[in-house]
Design a protein around this nucleic acid. Structure first.
Lengths: 194, 194
DNA sequence: CGCGACGTTGATTTGCCTCAACGATTGTGG
DNA sequence: CCACAATCGTTGAGGCAAATCAACGTCGCG
């Protein structure tokens, strides 16, 4: 018997849930602790889970044939992460999820969530709104890549995600912005000089 | 009294709905016909609606301070369009929606849809899955912009959206791909020469 | 017909990449 | 606790893809 406060209200902040529902939801989540450097998901694996980050830092990245890495998403406290394209279609991962800082996370399967939606519709609303936010963020990122220089994208990035900048290496940021580490270094020098 | 077959089953394909529900949903949709060239939404306007395209072609675009246009989304038959970032947050448009080919569309407000979700949960599921698909498409687009050359992005575009290519001007495609019309022209020449 | 919209072509510039080498920092085994 | 290696970040030289600037062909339409 676990007397600790449930993590469920923390995950589903602002979603009204009965005690019974909290217990029910809790039943489909599984806690994991990860060490820096481990990969949570590898290319080719069936993607059945998404992950809620309680602490630590992870990233999802894609590797080109040429070997170049492209970071698609970072995730820190209170974010969700997966290879969502594969997760949504219950297919195989084309991306890798890597732990960048020791992390505590909770995993939940797509199937379990879909079943819960039928009984607790406000969970579906919760995830729909999360998706709406993520959709907007992606759109902003596309607009940025269409209209901004590398320097502007970097400046926006550190302004928007200061907590992520703290937690990751510069070459991770470069691979997120779509530039080389050398270019990022030169941009940082230029900014430092004012 | 309209004896025509309702357009609702066409919009919500594969969603099981009673006749009563169809009538109820129909009540919150409004039909519009648009002429080529008109703008459906202007920057600064409150975004209360999203639009289902029955026929025709539209695009959403963003204009930089410098005057450069960036096409964020095209929409043809059976697609939805809006300035979604503003739509989701019920705020003011930062983008313009323009009709590129004479169109017949149906508009519905965010508020009406949210109310319907409470009574007909399968509508929320329908839109959540649409969002999941759109999310994946955006992610693919971000990956493309990070890892592909302009030529590769153009080739992917015409392979993925042949029906859109038919309906729009080359400079619209260029503004979607994030390149100039001159560059697109040179890419097309290169491809034609094989 | 004549004008505006659209697409093409050429010359030049530029932002970022590539390749190569070299500091700085961190971690680890002796 | 130091020695050494690996990792990470920086700097420079040269190259390339796409932008910019400018001019011109072509098509469709009032």
């Amino acid at each position: 018997m676990n007397s600790q406060k449930s993590f469920i209200p923390e995950i589903f902040k602002n979603v009204p849930l009965t005690k019974k529902e909290v217990v029910q939801i809790q039943g489909v989540f599984e806690k994991l602790t990860l060490k820096k450097g481990v990969t949570l998901l590898n290319v080719g694996e069936l993607v059945e889970y998404q992950y809620y980050i309680q602490s630590g830092c992870l990233r999802t990245y894609f590797v080109e044939d040429s070997g170049k890495e492209h970071t698609v998403q970072f995730a820190i406290r209170d974010w969700w992460i997966s290879d969502y394209t594969a997760f949504f279609s219950s297919s195989k991962a084309i991306m890798t999820i890597e732990c960048l800082q020791d992390a505590t996370i909770y995993k939940v399967s797509r199937e379990d969530m879909e079943n819960l939606y039928l009984e607790i519709p406000q969970l579906e609303t919760f995830f729909r709104k999360k998706l709406e936010g993520a959709f907007s963020s992606f759109q902003k990122r596309i607009l940025g890549s269409l209209s901004q220089t590398a320097k502007d994208r970097y400046t926006s990035f550190i302004a928007t995600y200061p907590n992520i900048e703290m937690s990751v290496k510069n070459y991770h940021i470069a691979s997120y912005l779509g530039i080389t580490t050398e270019s990022l270094s030169r941009i940082r020098r230029e900014i430092a000089q004012n």
